[in-house]
């Protein structure tokens, strides 16, 4: 198992968490949704695994490239 960092593709605000620590997620799952310029941008994991950490909370600003979650995949 490897520690995989999930990064935001875009600068914006965390609008909605769609997962919680401990969840088993499939590859392609949406972990959270970031709002940027009135668009909802899904944060998607390319690997299946278990969520170890969620590093942002709703309404918090997020920068492009910022690690927003860590999964054990």
């Amino acid at each position: 198992m490897a520690r995989i960092e999930i990064k935001s593709d875009i600068t914006g605000t965390l609008w909605q968490l769609r997962s919680k620590v401990g969840d088993q997620v499939e590859a392609g799952a949406t972990l959270m949704v970031i709002e940027s310029m009135k668009m909802e941008i899904p944060v998607i994991t390319e690997d299946a695994g278990v969520i170890l950490e969620l590093l942002v909370s709703e309404t918090q600003p997020v920068a492009e490239g910022q690690v927003v979650a860590v999964i054990d995949g």
Binding site: D9, M39, I41
Partner: peptide
């Protein structure tokens, strides 16, 4: 040639 927006990252 195709130039298309990518809504998965907002197309911004």
């Amino acid at each position: 040639g195709i130039v298309a927006s990518n809504p998965m990252v907002g197309g911004i």
